[in-house]
Design a protein around this nucleic acid. Structure first.
Lengths: 333, 333
DNA sequence: CGCCACGAATGAATCGTTTCAGTAGTGCCG
DNA sequence: CGGCACTACTGAAACGATTCATTCGTGGCG
């Protein structure tokens, strides 16, 4: 089909070993020979076959990254960070999307394992880590991304989501709010559950402050709008004076439906609002939204660093937890 | 390092050929033998080596998809469509991001070519198609995505952006608007330039209607906000009564700054607004935004179909152009 | 002049699969 | 009972690179 190293060697009048040397250690070859070989390569349009190389050298020079949702800015930023760090180590990152489906995650895991990637970064779906454990047992280095220290078996890099939830809650309390709704559900997503838990713990420590959890079906804009409609009357009546939305999409949807209704609610006068993730739309909203920021880029970079350590030394399992940071904007002050 | 088919064969007491048959055509093997081999596979934790397989069979079973921006919902939807269609043909899609950088695009092109992907879907950066032409000449099937018929050399699937621009403009004219600003710049991005051109052509056909082009630095929310601030006084004075934003991010930013200012402008009373792309945020804005929709999913699916045709028959170069569709919402009526 | 050292190039072995021509075994039929 | 057809399995060749022990040439030195 395509040109092989053998044909290049013939065209340049050298052996295959020499062509290989030109490609991989040019300074071990006489300059004139290098030139001759390069000319043949160009003339024939030779492109090395990565599969053959990988088969021989045993490494693929790439790592896999499985995220829950490519459309989520959080993960694309993590991916960007990972890519930058991997570039420096001459590794390429293969980005794949599980779409929060266990089946797709399994399929991707298998695909990457067959591909013999040098390591794997995974933001796992749900709590089913058995498949991952099996992969690790076969000797493939795996680092968990955006997934916390509860799984001591795995090296991981995560953000302290419970702390983030607490930060948001405490900020609302410090602003004098007395009755706070936590909006956004889906206990099956670990990160979200942690945020809610953190808020609830903070509530224990704040006597006289009421907290209630309002579940939503998903985590989208639309879910936020629907929650907003349900909440509006209770805000007007003074029953609720603050909302902590477990992600920014919900916060934005909520804000839109509160501001856009027939009898609008004022933010932050009638109700204070805090979101989570600090996506770019949060700061650009009509009333800019206070949010909890995660060091996305840093998460990606650190994940790759941990993976490199792990490839170097399979026992080097570290767990890194980043601190979230509250970014205060107009929606809560 | 890892378990090979040879060791599986030894453990099961059969030949390597038989193990291979169990994996690839199980019905050519006696059921008891299949069971024996499967047991050995499970017990040893054997995972086939994709590189070795690929080397032997010549095909990789995967196609590459290079997009301009993974963070852009348009491309993630296209990718999803491509993935679905590829799944049906038992191909896997490797998603990669050029980030609108020519250098990254080149690097990815090379990587995919070395990987011997069975085909390539590319949304090319700028007008530099020479590298791509070289790739095609070496026999790799390539389909252009979101890039029009101006490059007859390539099979492609695109949306008629000029038509989309005209649709938006004509809609504003039909609504009685007389002085229309086209907001959003960057002639170097082909698709954007086409939208502007389409609007300008429509303006020729509409005597008595004024058009002006207002460039922006980028295509982000922030660029839209800045444009909004600059435009607000000219809208209040009646100098401008409609805006066509070349993408939804700009439209949303514009709307936010117009609605949120100290002396707000009413949409659509003072100014009608049309965006482009119909991203989910457009319909969810405070005043839902009229926008031009592209059949994103369909684009991805069709691109893969064209690619499959091209793999089948290298001369089967087709060019598909989809019609954009105007979605009318409150911002313009 | 002979020998050695050293730089440059060679080419066979190897990686883990698939494929396919060939072998073995079994049952049936004339 | 010999031959045939058929199924199930075998094992070596091939894919395209890298690697490394070996060979070749040249120049320097004693």
């Amino acid at each position: 089909m395509s040109v092989s190293i053998r044909e290049v060697a013939a065209a340049a009048g050298v052996s295959v070993g020499t062509v290989s040397n030109v490609l991989n250690r040019p300074d071990a070859v006489r300059p004139e020979t290098v030139a001759k070989v390069r000319a043949a390569i160009r003339q024939l349009g030779y492109v090395p076959n990565a599969a053959a190389r990988q088969l021989r050298v045993g490494r693929s020079g790439s790592i896999g990254l499985i995220v829950l949702d490519v459309a989520n800015p959080f993960f694309t930023d993590v991916a960007r960070g990972a890519e930058r760090e991997a570039d420096a180590a001459h590794l390429s990152v293969m980005l794949a999307n599980s779409g929060e489906s266990v089946e797709r995650e399994d399929a991707l895991l298998q695909q990457f394992e067959r591909q013999r990637v040098d390591g794997l970064l995974v933001s796992p779906v749900g709590e089913h880590l058995d498949r991952l454990r099996a992969v690790v047992k076969r000797g493939l280095p795996v680092v968990l991304v955006d997934r916390g220290a509860d799984n001591q078996a795995f090296p991981s890099v995560a953000v302290d989501d419970a702390r983030g939830g607490a930060l948001a809650f405490e900020h609302l309390v410090a602003g004098g709010r007395k009755s706070i709704a936590v909006v956004g559900g889906q206990a099956r997503i670990h990160q979200i559950a942690e945020r809610v838990r953190g808020a609830q713990q903070a509530a224990f420590a704040a006597p006289g402050v009421g907290i209630q959890h309002i579940a939503t079906e998903g985590l989208s804009l639309e879910d936020g709008r629907m929650a907003g409609e349900a909440l509006a009357p209770r805000i007007r009546s003074g029953e609720i004076d603050a909302v902590f939305a477990v992600n920014d999409l919900i916060a934005i949807g909520l804000e839109q439906s509160l501001l856009g209704g027939t009898s609008p609610v004022s933010i932050p006068r009638d109700v204070a609002l805090v979101g989570y993730d600090d996506i770019s739309f949060a700061s650009a909203a009509v009333v800019p939204i206070t949010s909890v920021r995660q060091p996305r880029d840093e998460i990606g970079r650190t994940a790759v660093k941990l993976l490199l350590e792990l490839i170097e030394d399979p026992k080097a399992a570290r767990q890194v937890v980043f601190e979230p940071e509250l970014v205060v904007r107009a929606s809560s002050s």
